[in-house]
Design a protein around this nucleic acid. Structure first.
Lengths: 143, 143
DNA sequence: GAGCTAAATGGAATTATTCTAATTATTGAT
DNA sequence: ATCAATAATTAGAATAATTCCATTTAGCTC
């Protein structure tokens, strides 16, 4: 059984890959699908487990390759936190992350346009920003 | 030969450790010293090499332990960037980081008070922020 | 300085990720 | 639809980063 993306997601997916001359393969579609499906900031390991339910022969190398491809197309974002493997989330509106130092859980935090542009303007002339990562850590909600 | 911190740094160092009931050991002092000395965002590996010039029997485990201790005391900050080992910098004024995707070099970016407090206020009620990490990536200065 | 305990040591173990060579799938042209 | 070209996947080995563990050493209190 192969993973099936909803029509709009499939279009975004295919278009983004084609724009870079890349092929929309089953594995890439499935990796994207499982990340869209459960927005819990999974690790590559989590994604591997989920993808293999649909495509049991998928290897770790493929998961990593697909993730790198999706990130380079802007479909998926990496979230890097201290002392933990890289996590992934579908790239929707600009948002930050909050990691609870007690439970390890990661929460999304919306960033409004004004704050985002203020942040962007911190970077000096001559630098071209392609990506912004804002991560908070501390004591999360209702522990 | 042991590493020698300047008087003000030594005081900060000793006080911060004592405040947490921790001991200001030679290794911790040396790790802190080499991070203060060359502000190039070294990795644990870089720090290991530098520390061993002063304390040749220092092990990797010790470097990691010291770094964790210094981070927990707020003397040092971790910088986590995609696809690269954790880097460390002395914790001075609040600042962000910009990583050049071409050279891999990391630059400090100052954060003004207003922007910082705007960023802080993104976090919803009930969350207690202990740390903020802001990382930019893209094309750095004069490649 | 002796004793108590935290910290350092060396090496093995683990975890996360990347690499490599062989196989398979996708695409564009027929 | 079929074929060839080539991009992507596969399995497993290799590497890199970090952590763990049992023992030894050093810092602190009395």
């Amino acid at each position: 059984m192969s993973y099936s993306l909803s029509a709009p997601h499939r279009k975004t997916f295919t278009d983004s890959l084609h724009a870079k001359g890349l092929r929309p393969t089953r594995q890439r579609s499935c990796v994207y699908g499982v990340i869209l499906d459960k927005r819990d900031h999974p690790t590559a390991d989590d994604i591997y487990d989920r993808v293999r339910k649909f495509l049991p022969s998928t290897s770790f190398a493929t998961v990593y390759n697909c993730l790198e491809t999706l990130v380079s197309c802007g479909l998926v974002r990496q979230v890097n936190m201290a002392r933990s493997p890289t996590r992934y989330c579908p790239n929707l509106t600009p948002h930050a992350h909050f990691k609870c130092t007690i439970t390890g859980k990661i929460f999304d935090v919306q960033i409004d346009k004004n704050t985002l542009s203020r942040m962007q303007s911190l970077v000096p002339d001559g630098f071209v920003t392609e990506n912004i990562d804002l991560c908070f850590s501390g004591k999360g909600h209702q522990i």
